[in-house]
């Protein structure tokens, strides 16, 4: 079978798809390591129902488009650090970054960014030539906050719709960009980052960002309407790319009543805004 993929052009030698533990769902997900394990990439599928490809003079039933984009290995290393950090001891990182279920995990340390960026999330101690690390919640929160801030900048720059439940099948009704509050951007960015961290960390980050938790009912999208960029299972026997599911919850389209508009700042914990990223953008009216 064939797959259409969009990938960064960096192949000196053979990269490989590997399975690692998804830091958010804890299940196996597909990633890619460049040759020599220098760089880590995540694999996300853009898929909608009822699509197929024509490639040259062939037809391909599977209409997915895979994005292979650089990933920060620290997101995958964090769960290992946190687990070992429970005892509060400093440890050599190569004894910590491993996973029985996912042998490729230890390869993450070979990524050029890994060792160089550990200090963002851990305290370091040097004894002679050896380095020891201990997970630091405080450092991690600051690091994550910076991640959120970087993300907000891009959201604004790309004019991405960070509003709530604004799409219906016949019209798009959103506030113009100027009406979005900083809080809308922060929550949205927090939601995006939350795809790469555990639920506990996500909640802690929300508090660190000083965003109050809001409650809202979880809303599920009927499967026929699913449209998302996701790590998703592909069960077909012929298909070599097996993703595991991220439980995608999508905001259904709603007409906004005045009451709902004020409720528009909805809790995104448990909701994966990645899917809403692909709801229609609105260009700011000048």
């Amino acid at each position: 079978s064939t797959d259409s993929v969009i990938d960064t052009q960096k192949h000196d030698c053979d990269p490989a798809f590997v399975r690692l533990r998804n830091p958010c769902t804890d299940a196996a997900s597909l990633y890619m390591l460049s040759s020599g394990d220098v760089e880590l990439f995540e694999v996300k599928a853009f898929e909608e129902d009822f699509h197929s490809w024509f490639v040259g003079q062939t037809v391909q039933r599977d209409g997915r488009l895979l994005f292979v984009t650089p990933m920060d290995p620290l997101y995958l290393i964090l769960p290992c650090l946190i687990k070992s950090g429970i005892e509060g001891k400093f440890q050599p990182v190569d004894q910590v970054v491993m996973d029985e279920e996912f042998p490729a995990c230890s390869r993450l340390l070979s990524c050029s960014r890994s060792l160089a960026s550990l200090h963002h999330v851990a305290e370091e101690k040097e004894v002679g030539t050896l380095k020891f690390h201990r997970y630091s919640q405080e450092k991690t929160m600051n690091w994550l906050k910076k991640k959120v801030e970087r993300t907000v900048i891009t959201l604004k720059k790309r004019n991405i719709c960070v509003g709530q439940g604004v799409k219906s099948t016949t019209y798009v009704r959103v506030k113009p960009q100027s009406d979005y509050q900083e809080e809308d951007y922060l929550r949205y960015a927090h939601g995006l980052i939350s795809e790469y961290i555990s639920e506990d960390l996500s909640k802690a980050l929300l508090r660190h960002l000083e965003l109050p938790e809001l409650t809202s009912p979880k809303e599920t999208e009927p499967p026929s309407k699913k449209r998302k960029l996701s790590d998703k299972p592909v069960e077909a026997g012929e298909d070599y790319t097996k993703f595991n599911s991220a439980d995608f919850v999508r905001k259904p389209s709603k007409k906004m009543t005045a009451a709902q508009k004020s409720l528009a700042k909805v809790d995104k914990t448990g909701m994966k805004p990645m899917s809403s990223f692909f709801s229609p953008k609105v260009k700011a009216e000048k």
Partner: peptide, 24 residues
């Protein structure tokens, strides 16, 4: 420009924000 595949092409830039290195 609201077509989903068009918006999907914005993903790499967003990914760079989420995954790019944070300054010290």
């Amino acid at each position: 420009s609201d077509d989903t595949v068009v918006m999907a092409m914005d993903w790499p830039e967003l990914a760079e924000a989420i995954h790019g290195p944070v300054e010290d």
